[in-house]
Design a protein around this nucleic acid. Structure first.
Length: 844
RNA sequence: GCCGCUGUGGUGAAAUUGGUAUACACGCAAGACUUAAAAUCUUGUGGUCUCAACAACCGUGUGGGUUCGAUUCCCGCCAGCGGCACCA
């Protein structure tokens, strides 16, 4: 009890001191010191406050920032709020409060909790995505994208959540259900703003080369973009002046193509269906319409289809092959038509088997020319070509792919094509609590086919140009377009944004013709504000630029970006895309925003399950900190396991960390009281312990090895207390410094007690550097092995490390326990690894 | 199914470039202090054999391989976790 109160006293005292000295953690825009930018993903300030996941991730960032600061870097370590979004809107509706007010309450709560946990943010750089001064620039980015022809309006079937009454991006649909509420998603046609992120697909892959992201993250990005090279092959329809184009990644299988399938939504479908087949086709299409998206796209379902009655010609061998309709073909991928090669695609195999279509195998495994494929599980990926005329005998993927592509393109049967899994990004949301999209639509100008692209920009894509008729961004000097405060936030039943019910907002004047015009009433998705927030931290108060070039050049790129796995694909991709675009229009000085991405682990509940209110296993960091002390919680979080790992909360382990901190404090206090009486002289044994510790801690901190850093500190304290040596003041100070990033309160208190530093905080001190001469010990113990098995040890002093190999081996031979093994045996080989190992290889 | 990751004590986990496997902590056991409890401190703690110690043997999911020597590198398999899935 007494102990706990002491912790609290210290915490209150130093929190007040830090509050009064904000310059401690301020990033300096003018300093000559080398910069270092540590970024934690900014949180969504929910009503339930800071959870353990936040505390874990933020402590990890804070330790790193404190470490780098002490190493003498000019550190930028900022924090802000990603505050737009549905939960706040829903909560506001429920509580009959304004979202603006809810956001203010929540961010106030988060900020004070963060201060309590001693996160060393530069609070003068706080940003909030819902602040008009901030979203002015989110809107500005949208306008720039529009001007560059990277945003267009499109009437398109979107994923519609009937419960949230909102359109969802593909990314927000999980298992066919709404990511937020779990309701099954349906399709709905709505005119949406769409961002052409696909234009940047290759750049987003290539740019990864310039980053130090861990492989896992790079791979996730590459997979999501899903670049696929292949051909679009044209199949001419018999007796009609038409063609069906199919995209394929595997053009080398063209000689095995024995049919073509189109999706039920295929545009030209009517002209392909013969009179005899008409009835059957109509029936099939009716049935497939009844299936929902989930049924149609579950990989295991039966492949069904119907013959159209038409035939096309396989260009490479003039063979007549049938055209089918099948709902396993997707209308919105590739060309909506697929060539069927039964033996080399598992779906095609199932389809061919069901309808008795011809199968021609065109590849065999490298060593077995008699191999026949008779099941969809045996599809060959890379074999040797057969049944393919002049290409027979070639290796399929390496040689035949290239040769067949060249040959077909030369003959005008096909064109090269790259497809992506990545789709354009639906940017419209029909909700209140988001950035208003700063666009105006003028019907009059639309009738006159006015497009701002006509006069200002050269946009090649005809569809994009047409979609822009009548649409204009609001003039830049009118930004920000402020979200009006309204009484009702509920979306309308027809799915329109609540803003559409406010005539004062909707009705405006056309900037072009001066006539009556209407504003866009959709708002932007959550991602819009979080794509670029790291830029704003560099220059928060700038109201003429997104941030000044000068300051961006000083701080970019972000040196370490710490966040969760769940943002490794979407957020990171969107954010990199926006940054690359801003680089192209010369608004930012670096091609990539983040140098290194660190993805932190997950803290599970004490029951080893994900924390959730319904399971009742939620740990609230604030509550634990009140009980045991902030430093204990911080240090425990960092000690639990590797920073990237998944681990369960355990009160027992936390108690171990608490014991350690108590022992540490007690030890230092005892030493300090001794210091007054004696001037302890430096002692070599002590110096070795301290310097090895400095070296190890520094190295581990650098690579986020927090758990081993703390283990080393614990081990050193054990050694120190056992040795019962008196420590000189300078070494006591080193110990306090090494602990400072983890335990800011206790170390600050001890630092003030150790004395003679004026008013300087421990967090402003320079990080100790290990002295080379103390890093090697007096004596080294070398294991001696026989046939690789350690049988004995040999103690040698440093001096002897320099003596002849022969002498070491001779000494090793003379050891009792070694003699036992080697006497009377023939030694085939003697191996000595300097300072590490001796191994005798004997016969038998 | 595909992609990625991970398998080490009773538990969370360490192990540099291939060089003494299990650091650090938890838990457990015994002991000290205490009227008692808590707290604190000390000692022990992979397995087999042994009264015990020494020694020996076995041990990093599993089966092989490379090597003087493999938790680490290579090949095959098994189990678990995460992500994506009729993407042609």
């Amino acid at each position: 009890m007494e102990q706990t109160n002491k912790f609290k006293e210290i915490e209150v005292k130093w929190r007040k001191y830090w509050e009064e000295h904000p310059e401690l953690y301020r990033a300096d825009d003018k300093s000559d010191k080398k910069k270092f930018y540590v970024l934690n993903e900014f949180p969504y300030p929910s009503g339930s406050g800071l959870h353990v996941g936040h505390a874990f991730s933020f402590t990890g960032g804070d330790v790193y920032a404190r470490f780098k600061r002490m190493q003498g870097y000019n550190v930028l370590f900022p924090m802000g709020w990603d505050a737009f979004g549905l939960p706040t809107e829903n909560y506001a509706i429920k509580m009959k409060k304004k979202p603006q007010q809810v956001t203010r309450e929540n961010t106030d709560m988060f900020r004070s909790q963060m201060k309590k946990l001693a996160f060393s943010y530069d609070w003068s750089r706080e940003v909030n995505t819902t602040d008009p001064k901030y979203y002015k620039w989110t809107q500005w980015i949208f306008i720039k994208l529009f001007e560059a022809g990277l945003v267009y309006k499109k009437e398109m079937p979107i994923n519609w959540c009937p419960s949230c009454k909102i359109g969802l991006a593909n990314e927000e649909v999980v298992d066919g259900k709404c990511e937020r509420c779990g309701t099954e998603v349906s399709r709905r046609n709505i005119s949406q703003w769409v961002v052409k992120i696909t234009d940047y697909a290759d750049r987003l892959i290539d740019g990864l080369k310039e980053t130090d992201f861990i492989d896992k993250v790079k791979q996730a990005q590459i997979n999501w973009i899903g670049r696929k090279e292949g051909l679009i092959i044209d199949f001419l329809v018999e007796n009609r002046d038409k063609k069906i184009s199919c995209f394929t990644k595997y053009p080398e299988t063209i000689f095995g193509t024995t049919w073509v399938v189109v999706s039920p939504e295929y545009l030209d479908l009517d002209s392909l269906v013969t009179v005899e087949q008409k009835q059957e086709v109509t029936k099939y299409i009716e049935e497939s319409k009844k299936k929902n998206e989930l049924e149609r796209t579950s990989g295991t379902s039966e492949k069904t289809g119907v013959f159209t009655g038409s035939y096309v010609v396989n260009p490479v061998n003039r063979k007549k092959i049938p055209v089918w309709i099948g709902d396993y073909v997707l209308a919105n991928f590739g060309t909506g038509a697929v060539m069927g090669v039964a033996p080399h695609d598992s779906r095609d195999f199932m389809f061919a088997q069901k309808y008795g279509l011809e199968m021609i195998q065109v590849e065999v495994p490298k060593n077995d020319s008699t191999y026949i494929i008779d099941s969809y599980e045996k599809v060959i990926e890379d074999g040797v070509m057969i049944n393919s005329e002049q290409f027979n005998g070639m290796k399929a993927r390496n040689e035949a792919y290239k040769a067949i592509c060249d040959w077909m393109v030369e003959n005008n049967w096909a064109q090269r094509k790259i497809e992506y899994h990545l789709r354009d990004w639906i940017f419209s949301r029909q909700h209140y609590w988001g950035e208003p999209i700063p666009m105006i639509f003028c019907e009059n100008c639309a009738k006159n086919k006015f497009s701002i692209f006509n006069s200002q920009f050269s946009i090649k894509d005809k569809k994009i140009k047409e979609s822009s008729y009548g649409w204009m961004p609001i003039p830049e000097n009118q930004l920000p377009l402020v979200l009006p405060e309204v009484e009702a936030y509920e979306p309308t039943d027809d799915g329109l944004s609540p803003l559409s019910r406010i005539p004062e907002f909707v009705n405006c004047v056309c900037p072009k013709c001066g006539g009556k015009a209407k504003r866009e009433t959709d708002t932007m998705p959550n991602w819009a504000g979080s794509d670029w927030y790291f830029l704003r931290y560099c220059d928060v108060n700038n109201d003429i630029e997104i941030a000044s070039q000068d300051k961006l050049e000083r701080w970019l790129p972000v040196d370490v970006y710490i966040g969760g796995d769940e943002h490794n694909t979407l957020h990171l991709l969107y954010s990199r895309f926006i940054h690359q675009f801003l680089y192209d229009i010369k608004a930012v000085p670096t091609p990539e925003p983040y140098k290194m991405r660190m993805s932190h682990g997950v803290i599970l509940g004490p029951d080893n399950a994900r924390m959730s209110k319904s399971k009742g296993n939620v740990i609230v960091p604030e509550v634990v900190a009140d009980k045991y002390g902030v430093d204990v919680v911080r240090m425990y979080l960092m000690f639990m396991g590797p920073f990237t790992g998944t681990m369960a909360w355990s009160e027992n382990t936390l108690m171990g960390v608490k014991r350690f901190l108590n022992r540490f404090e007690k030890y230092i206090v005892n030493q300090i009281s001794d210091l007054r009486f004696q001037n302890n002289a430096s002692n070599k044994e002590v110096k070795v312990i301290i310097n090895k510790l400095v070296e190890g801690v520094t190295k581990d901190l650098e690579t986020f090895g927090y758990n081993t850093t703390i283990a080393k500190l614990m081990k050193a304290l054990n050694e120190i207390t056992i040795s019962k040596k008196q420590f000189p003041k300078e070494d006591i100070e080193v110990l306090i410094k090494l602990m400072a990033p983890f335990a800011p309160y206790i170390t600050e208190e001890l630092w003030s007690k150790v004395g003679a530093h004026g008013n300087a905080s421990v967090h402003q001190q320079l990080w100790p550097v290990a002295e080379e001469k103390y890093l090697s010990e007096e004596t080294v113990v070398i294991p001696i092995a026989v046939n690789g098995k350690v049988r004995s040890q040999l103690s040698i002093t440093n001096y002897e490390l320099r003596i002849e190999e022969k002498e070491i081996i001779q000494k090793a031979r003379e050891l009792e326990n070694i003699k036992k093994w080697i006497d009377g045996k023939i030694i085939k080989k003697e191996i000595y690894i300097k300072g590490k190992m001796v191994n005798f290889v004997i016969e038998g």
